[in-house]
Structure formats: structure tokens, C-alpha cells
Design a protein around this nucleic acid. Structure first.
Length: 495
RNA sequence: GAGCCGGUAGCUCAGUCGGUAGAGCAUCGCCCUUUUAAGGCGAGGGCCCUGGGUUCGAGUCCCAGCCGGCUCACCA
């Protein structure tokens, strides 16, 4: 007989036995009086004698993740969230029915216990159980106790098993939730209004990306899952909201990698009357204070690199960074032949036919980005690669824009917004021309957005932060799949 | 989309030169009232990812495919 089938049959037999004995194998409400984490925090340091004297009563519930039987007694380790506590079940101390339950317990079952805290001979904090309540029967066996579940495919497909077998995974998602909650309160405290804008767009906009298409039957129209909330949030600034933010999913129909999931969580926020310099200060304060609040430090380790989030962070202009890293004279950036020569000398493969700004940007990405391990604001991007950003008054070839890099990765992208409706229309039309020429990622003209801008948008600064990548950094995870509960995979073959 | 690596019991993994499918944990039976990878004795459990091919004989060699990981490309 198939082994899984056999273990499952065994457990169904035990379930039926419990039922015949009057024990509900899938019970109802149970009054949990204590959390394991709290008990350990309160009493984890107390000595054997101290505990004997205090006789602390407690009631916990959890899943059995280890079971060591000794004839008429057993040790069962219960897992409550990411925390574990040993319980000691002794038939002497239990009712007849509880003894019967004890004999039927399997790894994975849920039970509730009441008893007294004590320390065993080996000094382990343990509950001596006086009351045992069966809560829920597991029909499938848990992964092996020592190595746990390591097969990454199973970990992602059956995250529930991953969370059971690898409690530290639990902690990653707790941290994720806390970071997002902290971002929310940081922004709300500063007068931002949290809003929700459409996820289904008639015209996908606000980013350069391929959208997912879906269809609305009653309206008989195609809709696109949003690639960015940007254009809707700016409509709200036009409408008079001074500070808005949204934390929600974006969808991009592109490749999957350790830093790309088709749906990913994005924070975007917009501040009327502000410019990108204000956002530099805000970003520094937000990320360093959240690290301090959630991790208890602003110095973090990411994959072996120590990263110091203590402000202020380095400000480095795009051109200056490029020239300093590679020992180039800034004057050559305008000269195609010299840039190509530099690329060759630096062994960066570039397309000699490409526009100059593209070649310069390839050089930047190849040579500068990997060096940006410590938090760095790269500022003043060229106009050609910043179609939505406001020009700098002092140099119209540059924009009021920054990207924040940490650990060699782009974490945030922000700029003073373009609020000139006529300029925006021109840029849309240029994009549309590129689209007609075959660039399917180029922006489409959003007439309603242009209409909104024509009603007048105040000077505004806006920023986007990729939340998943931020969480990777804060939890020291190498892959985005490790910070998304259910990452996208090919569907499992049904057997 | 391309390259490299992997897929064997519920889990973690061995499997030599092509010659009867293995271990530990888990499961089942017996013993055991302070163990913690508990222990002792015994037992059961396999679509070796799928489909072809070579061969007297394939987990092993060859081809195609499926699924996953990593790297690269696009992107955040």
C-alpha cells in the first residue's frame, strides 16, 4: 500500500476511535488563556525551585510538533505561532478519557492543555498537563523532524507545511506585516491619507511594463490589471488631497526571478507643494526609523554585507557617480566616441547604434549600481530616461529625480512630478509614436489623466517603494519568493 | 526566452562499472511515568518525474517532454 495512504488510514482509524469514545476530533471553541511567547517571556528565566513555589497555572493550545512516548506518559512539544513549549502528559494526572486521547495523539494534531509550569530534570520549561482537550486531527504526516522541509518547490506550493516545519519562516511574515503597519502609521502621522484606487484599468499607465488583460462581461470591455497606481493618485492631488498614499498590488506580465513576482506590493505616495529633496529627507527618516522600531537597530546584515541605515545617507548625482567610479572626465559624457571608448576600456558591452543616453545608462547600471551597497540617493537623472519627472530649473537636461539604492538594488524611485499638461501631452504623444513603431511597452495616451492635469495639479513630489524588496532587505532573504506567502509558480500537475 | 543543475518511500538523502530498491526520521506491533534528533526489539511501505529508445537486462546510458532552482535577458 502507498505509504502516505497507509499513514492517512492509520490516522483516520484513530479519529474514528476518538469519535466512538465520545471525543469530537474536530472540536469547537477553546478558551486559550496564554500564548507560548508570552509565557516564555514571563517565566522563561525562572529557576526550578522558583516555579515549584509559584505553581503557575496556564492554558495553551497548539500543534504537536514533537512527541516522545514513555509508556504511560509522554512529552509533546506544542507549536503556537513561531514558538514552542514542551508539555508533559502523565496518565496519573489525567482523566480516563484524556488518557485515551493521549494514546491516540499524532504529530500534527492540535490540542489544548491546562496545567502547571515546571522544569524537568534536564531543566526544560514544561507544562505538567492536568487537562487535555483534543482540538483537531491531522491526517497527513509532518515533514521529518531534524531536516524539516527543505524542498523549495514544496515550500512555496504548500506554504502551510513550510510554516509548520520551519517556524523561522513564520517570523519573516510577522516582520513583513509589522514593517507595512509601521509604514502606514509613519505616513498617517504625517498627514497622509490612505486611499484605494482601481486595480482594473481601461488604460494601463504610470509605468513602462506589459500588463495582464482581463475582460468584463457585462460592460463587454477589456480591462488591464494595473501596472502602477501613479496616474490615479495624481488625479487625487488634482482633486485637492494634499498627501495621499496607497499600499497595494501591481501586476506586470513579465519574467519571474529572485527579484520579480508577477504581482508585487508597491507603496506610492504623493506630497503636494513638495519636491524631490523633501522626499529624500522623508525616505531617510521613514526607513531608518522603521528599522529601528521593528529590528531594534539601523545596522542590518544583508546576505553577508553590513548595511548602515543611520542617516544621513549618501547623495550622489548620476553623472558624478558615473565619472567618479570609473575615473572619467565629466566632459566626455556628451561625446559619443569617447563614451564608446570608455565602455570598451571598462569592458561593458553596449550597442554602438543605441542613443547616447542609453549607452551612458548601460555604463551606469553595469559599473555604478553594484557599488551602491550602502544606502545611496542617486540624483539628477537625465531627462531622456525620466519622462514623468520635472526638469531642473538650473539644468533642463536633468530632472528633479532620485533613485534610492541599497545592497546594489533599486529600492525607491521618486521625482518632482511633471504637472504641465501640455508638456505631458507631448510626452504621451512621443510614447504613442514609439508604440506605433513597435515598442509595446511604451505608454498609452490617457486622455482623462490629461484632462485632470488641465484642471491644474499643484507642484507635487511622488515616490514609489517596492515593498517586497524592502522586506527582503529587512529579513535578510535572498529571493522575493521568501517574502511573498504564495509566490507565483506553474500550476501543479494533477495526478 | 537561453544556459547550467536537480527530481529515488510521507520527509531528508545514498544508490559503485548497466545486474534482485537502500538508510535515518515518520508509520505499525511489543517494552518503557522526566525525554528532548529519547531508547530497545520486530514489521510494513516504491509509477526511481513522464514518454520513447539502446540492451538479455535501465534508478543508472541516449532522446524528447514536465516541474523546480540558479545565472543571464526585461523589469521594480
Amino acid at each position: 500500500m502507498d505509504e502516505l495512504h497507509e499513514q492517512r488510514q492509520q490516522r483516520i482509524k484513530k479519529l474514528e476511535y476518538l469519535r466512538r469514545a465520545g471525543v469530537q476530533p474536530y472540536g469547537g471553541r477553546f478558551e486559550v488563556k496564554d500564548r507560548v511567547s508570552h509565557l516564555v517571556q514571563l517565566h522563561g528565566q525562572k529557576s526550578k525551585e522558583h516555579l515549584e513555589q509559584e505553581r503557575i497555572s496556564c492554558t495553551i493550545a497548539g500543534r504537536i510538533v514533537a512527541l516522545r512516548r514513555f509508556g504511560k506518559a509522554c512529552f509533546a512539544v506544542l507549536q503556537d505561532g513561531a514558538d514552542r513549549l514542551q508539555t508533559y502528559l502523565k496518565k496519573d494526572l489525567l482523566t480516563e478519557q484524556a488518557s485515551l486521547i493521549m494514546d491516540q495523539l499524532d504529530l500534527g494534531d492540535w490540542i489544548g492543555v491546562s496545567g502547571i509550569l515546571f522544569r524537568t530534570k534536564t531543566n526544560e520549561l514544561t507544562i505538567e498537563v492536568h487537562r487535555l482537550t483534543f482540538l483537531s486531527k491531522a491526517l497527513r504526516p509532518l515533514p521529518e523532524k531534524w531536516h524539516g522541509l527543505t524542498d523549495v518547490e514544496t515550500r512555496y506550493r504548500q506554504r502551510y507545511v513550510d510554516l509548520i516545519a520551519n517556524p523561522h519562516i513564520h517570523q519573516i511574515f510577522v516582520t513583513r506585516s509589522r514593517v507595512i503597519a509601521a509604514i502606514r502609521s509613519f505616513l498617517v502621522e504625517r498627514g497622509f491619507l490612505e486611499v484605494e484606487t482601481p486595480m482594473m484599468h481601461p488604460i494601463p499607465g504610470g509605468a513602462t511594463a506589459k500588463p495582464f488583460v482581463t475582460h468584463h462581461n457585462a460592460l463587454n470591455i477589456d480591462l488591464y490589471l494595473r501596472i502602477a497606481p501613479e496616474l490615479y493618485l495624481k488625479r487625487l492631488i488634482v482633486g485637492g488631497f494634499r498627501r495621499v498614499f496607497e499600499i497595494n498590488r501591481n501586476f506586470r506580465n513579465e519574467g519571474i526571478s529572485t527579484i520579480h513576482n508577477p504581482e508585487f506590493t508597491m507603496l506610492e505616495f504623493y506630497v503636494a507643494y513638495a519636491d524631490y529633496q523633501d522626499l529624500i529627507a522623508l525616505t531617510e527618516e521613514m526607513l531608518s526609523s522603521i528599522a529601528q522600531a521593528i529590528l531594534g537597530t539601523s545596522i542590518i546584515n544583508y546576505q553577508g554585507t553590513t548595511i548602515d541605515l543611520t542617516p544621513p545617507w549618501r547623495r550622489w548625482s548620476y553623472r558624478q557617480a558615473l565619472c567618479e567610479v570609473n575615473g572619467l572626465d565629466p566632459s566626455i559624457l556628451q561625446n559619443r566616441a569617447e563614451v564608446l571608448a570608455a565602455a570598451q576600456r571598462l569592458k561593458v558591452p553596449v550597442d554602438p547604434q543605441a542613443p547616447l543616453f542609453k549607452i551612458v545608462n548601460d555604463l551606469f547600471e553595469e559599473t555604478v549600481e553594484p557599488n551602491l551597497q550602502q544606502p545611496t540617493f542617486i540624483t539628477d537623472y537625465p531627462i531622456e530616461i525620466s519622462p514623468l519627472a520635472r526638469r531642473k530649473d538650473a539644468d533642463p537636461s536633468l530632472t528633479e529625480r532620485f533613485e534610492l539604492y541599497i545592497a546594489g538594488r533599486e529600492i525607491a524611485n521618486a521625482f518632482s512630478e511633471l504637472n504641465d499638461p501640455l508638456d505631458q501631452r507631448e510626452r504621451f504623444e512621443q510614447q504613442a509614436a514609439q508604440r506605433n513603431a513597435g515598442d509595446e511597452d511604451a505608454h498609452r495616451i490617457d486622455e482623462d489623466f490629461l484632462r485632470a492635469l488641465e484642471f491644474g495639479m499643484p507642484p507635487t513630489a511622488g515616490e514609489g517603494i517596492g515593498i517586497d524588496r524592502l522586506i527582503m532587505l529587512f529579513t535578510n532573504q535572498p529571493s522575493i519568493r521568501d517574502v511573498v506567502l504564495f509566490p507565483q509558480l506553474r500550476p501543479e500537475k494533477q495526478s
